[in-house]
Nucleic acid binder design. Structure first.
Length: 519
DNA sequence: AAGTATGTTGGTCTC
DNA sequence: TGAGACCAACATACT
C-alpha cells in the first residue's frame, strides 16, 4: 500500500492518559493549524512486555484500553496506530514517513518515563520536530507545585501537602471535552496497515498461552460508565464514603469504586472525576472522602516525583534504613507470594490479588504489614515487586508510597500498631465468606476456626475435609511471637536511626550570623 | 526551645 | 454488641 501524504502531521503519543476526554495534549495535536494530519500513536515498549515484571492481567487490560481508544477514534474518522518496539527506535522512520512536525504527549513523572521522554525530546530536536506536553495525569502540574514550593522542604504529610497546594494554587484547572465526532475535526490519513493494528494477547510473544483471570475490563468507555453508575446508583455510598469504613472482605460487590485501574492508565481524568463528585455531592471533604482518595494520589505522585530512588530503600532520603530479609528466594517471601502462609486471611487476600489483580485498600494493608514489620520481616521492596507484577492498578508512585507507609519506612511511624491476621478480618467478616470464596479448601471449616484452622480439633478438620498440614498449610510463623519480636526490632531500628528528616536544603543564610543575637 | 496536638483506616480488655 | 479506656510511645507541625 502506498499512501500519498500531501502535508505534514502532528503525532499524539499515548502512554498513560488513555482517553479522549480531558486530554489537552491530544487537542494540541488536533487543533494545531500548521499540520494537516493527526496520527494518534501508542508504542508497545518491550520493556513493559515481560511477564515476570508485568502480569498478564494488566497487559490484557492495557490491550483493551487500546482497543477502546481505536474504536472511539474510528468513530471520529481517525484510528490508533500501534507501534511495536522501543519508541526511540520506532519513531524516526514513522516521523519521516508521515512528515511529522509536532509531537504531543502527557507529561509523566516516573523515572523510566522521564529518562525515555528526555531522549525522545532530544530526537525531536535533532529532527526539527516541535514537542508539546501537558500535565494531566494529576490534578495539578507537579512541576508547578515544585516551583511554588521553592526552597521549602517537600511536605511529607497529607495535610501539609493539601493545605499548601489548595492555598497556593486554588482549585485545579477544569477538565476539557473530548474532540468532537464532527467529520472535519480529526484528519487522519486512511492507512490500514496491519502492522499498526492493536495486537491480541496471543500476538504478544511473551504472553501467548497465559490465561487472563481478572474480571476488570479496560478502556475509557468502561471507566466513564463505572463512574456514572457509582455516582448515580449508589448515592448513599458516595455520601457515606469513608475509606477506613469500607469493607476489605466485600467481593464480588466491592464497597469501593473499583476505579483504580482506570486512574492508573489515565482512562479517567481525576479532574473530571472530582467535578462529577462535586456536582452530585458538594459537601465532600478530604481526607477520607471519595475526593480525598484523589488527593492521596496527588500527594504520593508528587513526593515520588521529587524523591530519587523512591521505589527502594537505599539512596531514598525519606526511607528509614532497616536490615530486612531481602532474598528473592526467601521461603517466607515465597510462601507469602504464593498464598501458603497458613493464615487463611492472608492467603485469601493473596489469592484474590493473583486472580483479580486487585485488593481492597485495607487488605493491601493487612498483607503488607504481615510481610514486613508485622510477621515475616521481609523487605517492603519484595512486596512492592509482587504488587507491581500482579495488580492491574499497579502504579510506581502509589505502590511504593504505600509500601513505605505500611512498613513504617516513611510517612507512617507507629510501628506498634500491627494488623492481626486473625482479629482484623473477624471484625468485617465473622463467618469468613471471603476466605471460603477464595480458598475453597476451607469452605467447610466452622466459622469458629475459619481464621485459625490449626486450632480446630482433628475431628473437626476431618469433618471439614481439610487436614491442616496436608490439605492446607500450617502457619509459617506464630503471629503472637513473630509480631512481638519484630516490634522489638522496629523499636531498635527507630532508636538507632533517629528522626527520618530529609537533609535540610541549603537556605540562603546571608545575614543569619549578623542578625543572630549573642549566644 | 520545649510542649502539645495530631496523624486516613490497630489490638485488647472491660463494661 | 458496641463504645471507650488503655496499650506503648514515634514523627511532624505548630504554638
Amino acid at each position: 500500500m502506498w499512501v500519498v501524504m500531501n502535508g505534514s502531521s502532528a503525532v499524539h503519543w499515548f502512554r498513560k492518559g488513555l482517553r479522549l476526554h480531558d486530554n489537552p495534549a491530544l487537542l494540541d495535536a488536533v487543533k494545531n493549524p500548521a499540520t494537516r494530519y493527526v496520527l494518534p500513536v501508542f508504542c508497545l515498549d518491550p520493556v513493559f512486555l515481560q511477564p515476570e515484571l508485568v502480569g498478564v492481567n494488566r497487559i490484557q487490560f492495557l490491550l483493551e484500553c487500546l482497543q477502546d481508544l481505536d474504536r472511539q477514534l474510528r468513530q471520529r474518522r481517525s484510528r490508533l496506530f500501534v507501534l511495536r518496539g522501543d519508541p526511540l527506535e520506532q519513531f524516526p522512520a514513522f516521523f519521516r514517513r508521515y512528515k511529522t512536525t509536532l509531537l504531543t504527549y502527557e507529561f509523566d513523572t516516573e523515572p523510566y518515563a522521564k529518562h525515555r521522554d528526555e531522549r525522545v525530546r532530544q530526537l525531536c530536536t535533532d529532527l526539527g520536530i516541535d514537542v508539546r506536553t501537558r500535565a494531566t495525569h494529576t490534578l495539578y502540574d507537579p512541576e508547578l507545585v515544585r516551583c511554588k514550593l521553592g526552597e521549602r522542604p517537600t511536605p511529607l504529610t497529607y495535610k501539609s501537602f493539601y493545605s499548601f497546594v489548595t492555598g497556593t494554587l486554588g482549585r485545579p484547572p477544569a477538565s476539557m471535552p473530548a474532540p468532537t465526532t464532527a467529520d472535519d475535526d480529526i484528519h487522519t490519513p486512511d492507512i490500514e496497515l496491519d502492522a499498526y493494528k492493536v495486537p491480541t494477547l496471543a500476538e504478544l510473544r511473551a504472553y501467548d498461552g497465559l490465561s487472563v483471570t481478572t474480571s476488570f475490563r479496560g478502556g475509557e468507555t468502561e471507566a466513564l460508565a463505572i463512574m456514572e453508575r457509582f455516582l448515580t446508583e449508589r448515592q448513599a455510598d458516595v455520601r457515606a464514603f469513608s475509606k477506613p469504613q469500607t469493607s476489605p472482605t466485600a467481593w464480588p460487590k466491592a464497597s469501593t469504586t473499583q476505579l483504580s485501574p482506570y486512574f492508573k492508565f489515565g482512562c479517567l481524568s481525576p479532574r473530571l472525576f472530582i467535578e462529577r463528585v462535586q456536582e452530585l455531592h458538594p459537601l465532600e471533604e478530604p481526607p477520607v472522602s471519595l475526593i480525598g482518595q484523589i488527593w492521596w494520589r496527588e500527594f504520593f505522585t508528587y513526593v515520588a516525583y521529587v524523591t530519587p530512588n523512591f521505589h527502594q530503600m537505599r539512596g531514598n532520603r525519606i526511607c528509614r534504613q532497616i536490615s530486612w530479609r531481602e532474598d528473592r528466594d526467601d521461603p517466607l517471601y515465597r510462601a507469602w507470594e504464593e498464598a501458603r502462609t497458613g493464615y487463611p486471611w492472608i492467603d485469601a487476600c493473596m489469592t484474590q490479588l493473583r486472580k483479580e489483580g486487585w485488593l481492597h485498600h485495607l487488605a493491601r494493608h493487612a498483607v503488607a504489614c504481615f510481610l514486613t514489620r508485622g510477621d515475616l520481616w521481609v523487605s517492603w521492596e519484595r512486596g512492592r515487586e509482587t504488587f507491581d507484577r500482579l495488580l492491574v492498578d499497579a502504579d510506581y508512585s502509589l505502590n511504593s508510597a504505600n509500601w513505605l507507609w505500611l512498613s513504617c519506612s516513611a510517612f507512617f511511624h507507629q510501628y506498634y500498631r500491627v494488623y492481626s491476621p486473625i482479629g482484623f478480618p473477624q471484625k468485617y467478616d465473622p463467618n469468613g465468606d471471603f476466605v471460603r470464596h477464595f480458598l475453597p479448601v476451607l469452605r467447610e471449616m466452622p466459622a469458629k476456626y475459619i481464621y485459625t484452622p490449626w486450632e480446630a480439633p482433628l475431628a473437626v478438620q476431618r469433618k471439614a475435609h481439610c487436614i491442616i498440614g496436608e490439605d492446607y498449610p500450617s502457619p509459617i510463623v506464630d503471629h503472637a511471637t513473630a509480631s512481638r519480636e519484630n516490634m522489638e526490632r522496629m523499636r531498635k531500628a527507630v532508636s538507632e536511626s533517629g528522626p527520618q528528616r530529609p537533609p535540610k536544603r541549603k537556605r540562603d543564610d546571608t545575614g543569619a550570623s549578623t542578625s543572630s543575637p549573642i549566644p
